[in-house]
């Protein structure tokens, strides 16, 4: 979705040896560069450092309170890192406005669903689509051609996305009247409507039964197949293993492991974190 513009003008690396081979051409999309974030005395993120490459599905896992959501909040501009910085598409986003970061191509969902409850499913998605619309107040006031055109585009996009996430029947229902699972899907559709390069999902499968989880995995893969990079927060290990290319593990605000799902699963610190065994007992 429109990311060809961003391709750096580096000449083809004909003779260069592949240093790392895990994720294709490994063009960095998001760099979390030694980020520390404190809330008063609480260190929610402690020198967290990882890179997200274009086209991959990266899992961000860790026990409750590890700092995963805080990491999303720092990326999307809700919190500013106390130290370190975050770069998106090579640009420093620390200090940028939230809506500006969205326009740059980062979209997210929320752990506790935050739709606009009294707006219809259609309107919720239209708000997302409006992120790239240029209709001015004047052209809306007089219903000028641009307003009509963008309004039509927004509705078409909404129809397409509702179909894509599988809730096309609920177009004209208020978001609050959708079932829990439908609301989660609508949130994904609303985020996709902003034409993201990177989609961040915060525990999208929370509260799902195994069948629903499986459907969600398929949806995430489908999103990746559209060329969208996905950052997935999840604390159900099995779910993450099935869909992610790589995994970053947080515990108490610190990165304790990073690697392929198979590697991470074997990592003794990860096992300890998930089983709640104190570090020194394992080491």
């Amino acid at each position: 979705m429109g990311e060809t513009v961003q391709k750096p003008t580096v000449p083809e690396q004909a003779g260069a040896p592949a240093v790392e081979s895990t994720a294709g051409d490994r063009e960095p999309l998001l760099e979390v560069d030694h980020v520390t974030l404190r809330f008063g005395g609480v260190v929610a993120l402690n020198d967290v450092d990882f890179t997200l490459y274009k086209g991959e599905i990266l899992g961000l896992i860790g026990p409750n309170g590890a700092g995963k959501t805080t990491c999303f909040n720092a990326m999307t501009g809700i919190y500013q890192p106390s130290e370190g910085e975050i770069r998106f598409r090579g640009e420093r986003i620390t200090g940028k406005k939230k809506h500006h970061i969205t326009k740059m191509g980062m979209a997210r969902t929320f752990q506790n669903i935050r739709l606009f409850p009294e707006m219809t499913a259609l309107e919720n998605i239209q708000v997302g689509a409006d992120a790239h619309h240029k209709t001015s107040v004047i052209s809306a006031l007089f219903r000028l051609p641009r307003h009509r055109r963008e309004e039509r585009d927004g509705i078409e996009k909404a129809e397409r996305l509702l179909d894509f996430v599988g809730i096309s029947g609920r177009m004209h229902d208020a978001a609050r009247n959708l079932s829990y699972g439908e609301q989660r899907r609508l949130e994904i559709a609303r985020a996709l409507a902003t034409d993201p390069v990177l989609l961040c999902l915060d525990e999208p499968a929370a509260g799902f039964n195994p069948a629903e989880k499986e459907e969600l995995l398929q949806l995430i893969r489908k999103i990746r197949d559209q060329g969208i990079t996905v950052l997935l927060i999840e604390h159900d290990m099995r779910l993450v293993m099935g869909v992610t290319d790589r995994i970053v593990v947080l515990e108490f605000g610190k990165k304790i492991a990073e690697g392929l799902p198979a590697e991470v699963r074997e990592d003794h610190r990860v096992i300890a974190a998930y089983l709640g065994v104190p570090d020194d007992d394992v080491a």
């Binding site: 939230k98 969205t102 992120a131 107040v137």
Partner: peptide, 28 residues
Amino acid sequence: NLNRSRVGRAWISIREDEDAAQLMGVPT
């Protein structure tokens, strides 16, 4: 006319959840 355009949607999204509106790209 304003209310039935992106302007009205922006207003209502602000009323319903200002943070979420910003994160969906609304210059609140």
